[in-house]
Design a protein around this nucleic acid. Structure first.
Lengths: 345, 345
DNA sequence: TGTCGGTCGGGGAGCGCTCTCAGCGCGTGC
DNA sequence: GCACGCGCTGAGAGCGCTCCCCGACCGACA
């Protein structure tokens, strides 16, 4: 049962429908400029033969692949510990499917892999790329830029000093942080602390900036560095309690961090939100709803981010195909966040 | 900056190296049977020109694609709420990368999408498929079987009555469940309950079977149906406490379920593990380590499952390519689980 | 009814590659 | 010294498809 029963070709379809290969091709590709009765006959032949176009042959001449690479360049195992990428993938997948494009997933293990990804993208196997590279100093954006593949980034990429213009989609990390902190201040809290995320990621930096927008640099001891993990949150919370026992509110860089902080607070007998109010970021459901008490947090619509990334890329691709030249599109799209009030603040 | 500066072809490489296209091709594909000096010259030409083979042209003649589809057929949004698939993907990705194969991700939204996936697989765009379809009565396995694509399933697929032979990789759900329940019994618990997973999934059924292997059908009221979610766990736990107030141990079908059960137990003032011991399944880190108290659970090596799936598929593919005919490989590979003792039991 | 314009269909080239096959050159054995 | 054979290289066909271009056909108008 090897597939020696080779799949039917366009030729076969044409023969069966009694038309030429070209006509069959036209029908398969939309049927414009072919009279209805013929269209019908070809359609039936396709049906009967179970014809499926050979994508390789098609790509060879059209130079299109109807495929988009999704590059997730996260060295940490952390990546999939949260549903973040999964949700983005879902959004991306939906959009690509609607556009008859395939999703080629490229996961990298550490920086050595970057070269492989660069080579793949430069190899012209895909029409475009969606890239998640949220780390400062990451060589990947530069590499990809060099590959000359249409790309949309997930999260604001760090271009170092050379302010390169790139299309990206990001959450309003800074604005969301501001809203969270303002909420805490509005609650009458005066000693508001921030446990940052891993500061080699733009999202962490942006959230810290948002915090500072509201709080200024008043008391630098109120800012402790975390790393987006629960363990980091615990560590930071302990340090915070030691430094500033009078802290009455904490804005954690993400929900995982908040969950760690919450645990330490409980352990130390601080009541949440009575003694210390806590806000997270992400609204990562399995975490935010399961903490004790349920976490007030800043929600970002992750799936929508993915969908938007795909949409921007596809639009760019279509535009290029249409020779409509210069991309007047936006460099960055920033999605709004919303504060979700639960119990912790 | 359109890519009109079309990429160099083999022809160009051959010309530059002063050899024929055939020889250049041989070198690019390993260089067997070409004398060293020529190999060297071709290599240099490739380097200088930045030549990358056109995969479409290659596939057209070889009928190989060096690509594998990963099908995740989960209607629920639940899918990515847990890191399960992410970890599997990581394992799969590693293995495929090592084999120079690409990963084409197919996410389906509900059953309507099944047809699309079937068509894609039947279309011969990929060399093989890794399929996650863990639901009873799912038409997908049948569909894929019909497509005639080499496939490895993740999780034991349900073939209904027709006991079809398929290659799959699964955790030892039944054995793991047995170990968990035995552990509870070993703790001296006599009223051991089970909150099942969604019973339309083979994993849930297998875990229930494991529970019964140890406990028999003694008291059917001790088995409550859950759905793998925290909310389901809460609901089931409430029902359980009502039915059997004397319950002194709970084996939950997964960690999420356990976390819900834990919450209800705390709310009702039952101490864990003193009054009621609780065991989960999965060892889903962000959950199991964060519960209060930390969860004793059955760990499965998820990434390894993914890696193994890929390895089995690639081996099958290589074998077919080598014309070594009939696959003597195993129908199913079941990975062992280990009990991870934390505090809850 | 004849002719012209517009539209639709068919033939053929060629995308970049692999692979078969023939041929050439060299070494070896008698 | 000649014939045979083996190992390496090159020429060419063709994978399945799209798209260009020309020829044919049909309808309409005079």
């Amino acid at each position: 049962m090897t597939e020696t029963a080779s799949r039917p070709t366009l030729e076969a379809v044409a023969a069966r429908a009694g038309v030429s290969r070209a006509t069959a091709s036209r029908v398969v590709n939309g049927g414009d400029g072919v009279r209805e009765p013929l269209v019908e006959r070809v359609r039936r032949a396709v049906e009967e033969l179970g014809y499926v176009p050979n994508q390789a042959a098609r790509s060879l001449v059209t130079r299109r692949h109807d495929a988009v690479a999704v590059v997730i360049a996260e060295p940490e195992t952390r990546v999939f510990a949260d549903p973040f990428f999964g949700l983005q993938l879902r959004g991306i997948s939906k959009e690509l499917t609607a556009h008859d494009s395939q999703l080629v997933l490229l996961l990298t293990e550490g920086r050595d892999d970057h070269a492989r990804v660069g080579r793949y993208l430069a190899g012209g196997h895909v029409d475009g790329a969606l890239v998640f590279s949220l780390h400062l100093d990451d060589p990947l954006p530069e590499l990809i830029h060099g590959a000359g593949v249409p790309t949309v980034f997930g999260g604001r990429p760090d271009w170092g000093d050379g302010a390169r213009r790139a299309v990206y989609v990001d959450s309003d990390n800074r604005g969301g942080a501001r809203e969270a902190v303002r909420h805490l201040v509005g609650l009458g809290r005066t000693r508001v602390a921030h446990i940052t995320g891993a500061l080699d990621q733009t999202s962490a930096v942006d959230r810290l900036d948002g915090f500072r927008d509201v709080m200024g640099d008043a008391d630098p001891r109120l800012v402790v560095e975390g790393d987006f993990t629960p363990a980091g949150g615990e560590r930071a919370m302990r340090e915070l309690l030691e430094r500033c026992p009078d802290v009455d509110a904490v804005f954690a860089a993400n929900d995982l961090t908040a969950s760690g902080a919450l645990r330490v607070l409980r352990e130390r007998g601080r009541r949440v939100p009575d003694d210390v109010a806590v806000i997270g970021f992400d609204d990562m459901l399995p975490v935010a709803e399961q903490t004790d008490p349920p976490l007030t947090t800043v929600r970002q619509d992750i799936e929508e981010m993915g969908r938007l990334m795909a949409r921007l890329l596809l639009r760019d691709l279509d535009r290029r195909a249409g020779k409509q030249g210069a991309d007047g599109g936006p460099a960055g799209v920033v999605l709004p966040t919303t504060l979700v009030r639960r119990v912790s603040a």
